[in-house]
C-alpha cells in the first residue's frame, strides 16, 4: 500500500519539500527584518531615506521634544518596553515604547507617563493616555534607544518635552500638574 501511495504522490511530495523550504526562507527574512529598529518614515525612489521623527536634536535646555498629546507633567523612572507580552511596569514608571496598539492598553494602568516613537493626537496610545489622564509625548525620534530603563525623566505632556533628570534613587512618580 505504501509503495502505491508513494508512486502516485511523488510529484506532490516533492512540492511539499519546496513549500517547506519557502516557509523557512520567508521566516528567516522576517526574523532578520524584525531586528531592524530604525525604519524610514519616508523614502524616495532614488534611495534617499528620512528616518527622523520630532526632536531629533535636544533643544538649548537639554530637553527632547515631541508632540504633546496628553496634558500634565510627571516625573518617573523610564521603562523601555518593546514587547508588552512580558513587560511588568511598576506603578508610576514612564512607559517608553516604539508604538502601541490595543493589546498594549492594559499597561497604561500602571504607567505614570507615556513616550512613543511614533504617533499623533489621535493615535491609539494618545487616546488611551488621555483617557487615563497620563501625560504623554509622542513621535519622539529614537526614544527607545535615547532613553534608557532606570533613567529618571520629567515628561511634560502639555509642552511636549522630556528632560532627563539627575538620578536620585527614588522611584516614585510625582505628578505636578
Amino acid at each position: 500500500m505504501r509503495e502505491v501511495g508513494a508512486d502516485r504522490l511523488k510529484p506532490r511530495h516533492r512540492d511539499t519539500g519546496q513549500w517547506r523550504a519557502l516557509v523557512a526562507e520567508r521566516r528567516q527574512v522576517y526574523g532578520r527584518e524584525k531586528l531592524r529598529r530604525q525604519i524610514p518614515r519616508l523614502m524616495l525612489s532614488d534611495g534617499r531615506a528620512f528616518y527622523e521623527g520630532l526632536g531629533a536634536q535636544v533643544d538649548s535646555e537639554g530637553a527632547i521634544n515631541g508632540s504633546p498629546v496628553s496634558p500634565g507633567v510627571v516625573e518617573g523612572m523610564v521603562r523601555v518596553v518593546l514587547d508588552p507580552r512580558n513587560a511588568q511596569l511598576a506603578l508610576g514608571e514612564i512607559l517608553v515604547c516604539p508604538g502601541t496598539d490595543p493589546s498594549w492598553t492594559p499597561l497604561f494602568l500602571a504607567a505614570g507617563g507615556l513616550v512613543m516613537e511614533v504617533g499623533g493626537l489621535m493615535t491609539h496610545g494618545s487616546v488611551v493616555a488621555r483617557e487615563y489622564g497620563i501625560p504623554a509625548v509622542v513621535g519622539v525620534n529614537e526614544a527607545t534607544t535615547r532613553l534608557k530603563t532606570g533613567q529618571r525623566v520629567r515628561v511634560d505632556g502639555t509642552r511636549g518635552r522630556i528632560v532627563v533628570l539627575p538620578s536620585t534613587g527614588s522611584g516614585s512618580a510625582v505628578v505636578m500638574g
Binding site: R36, R37, R41, M43, L44, S45, P98, G99, D101, G119
Partner: peptide, 16 residues
Amino acid sequence: LHVLFSVNHMQGMLDP
C-alpha cells in the same frame, strides 16, 4: 522620482 510613505508609522507598528 517617487515618494514612498510609511504605512507602518501611521499604524504605530514598526515590526515588519
